[in-house]
Computed example of a mutant assay.
Amino acid sequence: MERTWNVYLSGEIHTDWRSEIEDEAKHRGLPIRFSGPVTDHPASDDCGVAITGAEDNKFWHDRKGAQVNAIRTQTLIKDADVVVVRFGEKYRQWNAAFDAGYAAALGKAIIVNHDESLTHPLKEVDAAALAVAETPAQIVDILDYVITGRLAGYTDKR
């Protein structure tokens, strides 16, 4: 029986990087079950107060949401074989950095994804990762290689 890999996709929610990875992995027939955070930004921000009641103080409003979201995030990261953490250009993703640290503390295999302009600010996160990719395509190539041993587009030149 073929193993199904659990891959958690953490990080920025303003581009379609997740669907690029999921679509290409499916196209290649990779046995992967993807998971991730709630990517509906307003729902994620307001889940705590929507479920347990309003807060006058923004600190407690945000804290309720963060704690409810942490139930999902912590559970799925603990269950993951690989954690992919994407840092985008538009916003500072403190939550993504936290997810990377949490995954590292659990000994999870981490793939970090960001463009070259973020190499210096993310040097500590990159150092904790087993791979650093600049594109979703590179992430799928890494997953393909790790899972199947296939090295996409490679020809031995020895």
Rank of each mutant, 00 (worst) to 15 (best):
E124W: 15
N6Q: 14
R28E: 09
L143D: 00
T15N: 00
E55L: 05
G48R: 01
I51F: 14
V82E: 11
T75V: 14
R63S: 09
L122W: 12
V125C: 06
E134L: 12
E55W: 03
Q74P: 04
A97W: 00
H14G: 13
L9W: 06
G36L: 06
E24Q: 10
G107M: 05
W17F: 13
A80W: 09
P42I: 09
T148I: 06
A133M: 07
E12H: 15
I13L: 12
T135K: 07
I32D: 01
S117K: 15
G88F: 06
L130T: 11
D81E: 12
R72V: 12
Y8R: 11
A131R: 05
A70G: 02
H41M: 04
H61E: 07
N69Q: 15
A105Q: 00
A70I: 00
L122Y: 13
G36W: 00
R92A: 13
H27Y: 04
M1Y: 14
Q67L: 06
L130P: 13
G153T: 08
V49T: 05
S10A: 14
A25T: 03
I71K: 15
S19M: 13
Y8F: 14
L122M: 13
N57E: 09
I51K: 10
A109I: 00
A54S: 12
A25K: 06
D99W: 00
V68R: 10
Q67W: 03
G107S: 07
G107W: 15
W17K: 03
R150G: 00
A100P: 00
G11C: 07
R3F: 12
I139S: 01
Y91C: 09
N6M: 14
F87K: 03
A66C: 14
G65D: 00
P121Q: 05
V38Y: 05
H14Q: 14
I147P: 04
I147L: 13
S19R: 10
V83S: 01
Y154V: 08
T155A: 12
F98H: 06
T39D: 11
Q93Y: 03
T119P: 05
F87V: 03
A104K: 02
E124R: 15
P31H: 02
V112H: 01
H61K: 08
N69P: 15
Q138W: 00
I111D: 04
I142N: 00
A127E: 04
T73L: 09
R150D: 06
G29E: 07
T15W: 01
V85P: 04
Q138A: 08
S44Y: 07
V85I: 05
E22N: 08
R150T: 07
E24R: 07
A127H: 03
G107D: 13
G88P: 01
Y102R: 07
N6A: 12
R33C: 08
P121K: 08
R18K: 10
A133Q: 04
D99V: 12
R150V: 01
